[in-house]
Design a protein around this nucleic acid. Sequence first.
DNA 1: CGAGCGAGAGAACGCTCGTTCTCTATACGT
DNA 2: ACGTATAGAGAACGAGCGTTCTCTCGCTCG
Lengths: 206, 206
Amino acid sequence: MDTQGADTARRGRIDGDEARRRILDAAERLFYARGVQAVGMDQIRDAAGVSLKRLYQCYPSKDVLVEAYLEHRDRRWNQALAEHVGRAAAPRERVTAVFGFLAEWFETADFRGCSFINAFGELGPTSPPVAAAARAHKRRLRERLGTLVTEAGAADPDVLADQLLLLVEGAIVAAAMGTATGPAERARSAALALLSAACPPAPPGR
Amino acid sequence: MDTQGADTARRGRIDGDEARRRILDAAERLFYARGVQAVGMDQIRDAAGVSLKRLYQCYPSKDVLVEAYLEHRDRRWNQALAEHVGRAAAPRERVTAVFGFLAEWFETADFRGCSFINAFGELGPTSPPVAAAARAHKRRLRERLGTLVTEAGAADPDVLADQLLLLVEGAIVAAAMGTATGPAERARSAALALLSAACPPAPPGR
DNA sequence: CGAGCGAGAGAACGCTCGTTCTCTATACGT
DNA sequence: ACGTATAGAGAACGAGCGTTCTCTCGCTCG
């Protein structure tokens, strides 16, 4: 009688892949919500409904689990962003879709800023792998912005992409700290202004 | 013979105010460089050249010391920014001076991002006082930007101030993580573009 | 000059937490 | 059905750290 209990949160004899997934889900939720150092392995075990032995079989140390957490979050975030941007066709709409994505994200109940900025601030000087993961995440974002503004025909794509990156990161930080009102909308209007200024509506000169 | 040693880093019988200053200096340096949780009271004691007893006499707990650290940093940072902005007279120059200040700051040898963003990411969900201090710091920055853009005659100062805030925070984060090239300059040019778009050079209409 | 208050140095305490070990019970192969 | 390998549950271990305590010494005040 139901010793398996696939979707319950309590313990039971479970498959190896299922255990990995549950652990990673629990770790992602807890690390993101409370910070890495504030969450112990015991709490992850409880939330995942897995034995400590299993936990250490799947992820042999907390450092490994932290890296897996960041990697997973990078993949999910980039995928969600890509989907959101992909729903827009016109180049300019694709750029503003980035900020629409941010607006939706900021409204999420458990939003607590950017995992990578948080992890970098918390562990960056101590843990080179964490610092590298955070930089890699931002580099991918920067590259995506680069292709978007290039497709939009910006005069100097490198400059504009950097500026949009600043707006995105600033909006995330401001949303996390509640500093600016409607950070996503403010960032989007700023991005539109920069975009309009950067891609001349009529070809200049001849 | 020199049991006092005011400017040496080693121990010795010292005055109470001097002890407070040395402790706060050491705490600021270490907390900022390595993060709050990564620095122990013993290390602060060593760096300050003070006994543990003295340390706890001046700051009765680590939490108190952390709050003093953030408060001190807020005061110093705002003062430095005010000085930098104060050297410019024209309203538009005063706005761009903010980004000149950032550029100088980013070149500092021990630059490691914004103490408040870092502390918020590290301790925000755990420590309400830290979260409050970070929000207060950003609120002050936002207010300063508000007055600057108002003096510059922006059409909608609230929107522009928010946007400049996003650029500033984004530039700080990008500088800390090495994401964008020349974040301060990129932010400044973006700010100038937004500023030009926001304050009509000729009064519109009549 | 002597007594005592306070400072410095560091050991000690208690707690947390990452990691491992032990013990018991269960599933599976023959 | 029995032995064995493995999982679960949680105790145990060791290190790190915030905080306190002890001991000794030196300065100060009468």
